[in-house]
Design a protein around this nucleic acid. Structure first.
Length: 299
DNA sequence: AATCGTGGCGCCTTCACTTG
DNA sequence: CAAGTGAAGGCGCCACGATT
């Protein structure tokens, strides 16, 4: 049995158990069917299954355990569900893109610039080991290029982009840098002390997007969407603080507790005439002014 | 020749269910 | 309700054949 077949078998086992919890017999039936399709013999003994499950855990961090009360193997949801879901998602995409040849005719990829994930691993390593990082940064807004020395605290994702949050040595401010804007990353030998009170999730709890201005306080925001848009907002909440206030034939109303940062205003604008701002007045006026000015552009 | 992947064996553990 | 039972997995160990 070659390496390729073994890896293939791991995927099959994961796929089977993800569909529904399964007994050893179920798994072997599934493997037998796949053996006929793929022309290998994937069937395994109980001993090998046990070893495979260990390998799967160490490779993919997918924890499959036997549940004695229902007599089946199932994926144990971890204490980090976000991480777990993302791993499974990546696993699906990887397998699908990997197994088929000549797929570009059938898949339309979004054209996007590289998102800087090649630096992801290096930065994460620096964070875990409290090592300063140095890189060249191109700002989003202008052509300014600068060399930065940063004490990295964490990584954050927003709208499919990744950002590193860290303290800039130059002025001691904690800032956010887009990974796709970073070049010539260098992990220095210089250590820093991770600030004891810093909690990444807490810091961004009330934040929409990556900008976290100090002078803004989170506000209670009430939004009313039309019914169609409401369906989308219901399945993809804008923010973890989202609560449904009204859900009827006329409108879909929610409340949020977030900072009204630039990112948030852009988000509201992206819903155009499908959203009304019920509360607060300040935000309502701000958005109205933007639309007024925008109208000028169409005269 | 050395290593690796695998299955079988034997004994242990776990858990649900039965029995008195 | 405690003890016993059975079914199934867990796991260390070893042999065998395939792979490198």
């Amino acid at each position: 049995m070659s390496k390729k077949e073994v890896i293939n078998r791991y995927s099959l086992i994961i796929n089977r158990i993800r569909k529904s919890p399964a007994t050893l017999k179920d798994i072997n039936n599934y493997l037998e069917r796949e053996s006929e399709i793929q022309g290998y013999d994937f069937r395994i003994s109980k001993r090998t299954l046990k070893r495979d499950l260990e390998d799967i855990f160490s490779l993919y961090k997918i924890d499959i355990q036997y549940d004695f009360s229902t007599k089946v193997y199932r994926i144990v949801s971890q204490d980090e569900p976000d991480l777990n879901n993302r791993m499974l998602e990546a696993f699906d995409t990887f397998n699908a893109l990997n197994q088929t040849e000549g797929i570009s005719r059938f898949i339309h990829f979004e054209k996007r610039r590289p998102n800087g994930t090649e630096n992801f691993h290096g930065i994460l390593h620096a964070i875990q080991n409290s090592k300063m990082i140095k890189y060249i940064y191109h700002k989003y807004w202008n052509d300014e290029i600068s060399t930065r020395l940063i004490a990295p605290y964490g990584l954050k994702e927003f709208k499919n982009r990744w950002y590193v949050i860290g303290k800039d040595e130059k002025d001691g401010e904690v800032k956010t840098f887009g990974l796709d804007r970073i070049t010539q990353l260098e992990i220095t030998a210089k250590k820093f002390n991770y600030p004891s009170g810093f909690d990444l999730n807490e810091r961004f709890a009330n934040c929409f997007g990556i900008i976290n201005p100090k002078d803004l306080k989170p506000e209670k925001i009430v939004l009313s969407f039309d019914v169609e848009q409401g369906k989308y907002i219901k399945s993809f909440p804008l923010h973890s603080s989202q609560q449904v206030l009204k859900d009827n034939a006329q409108e879909f109303q929610i409340s949020l507790n977030v900072l009204t940062s630039f990112d948030f205003i852009m988000e509201i604008l992206s819903y155009g005439d499908r959203v009304k701002i019920i509360q607060p007045k300040g935000l309502r006026n701000e958005i109205r002014n933007i639309y007024m000015r925008a109208l000028e552009n169409f005269r």
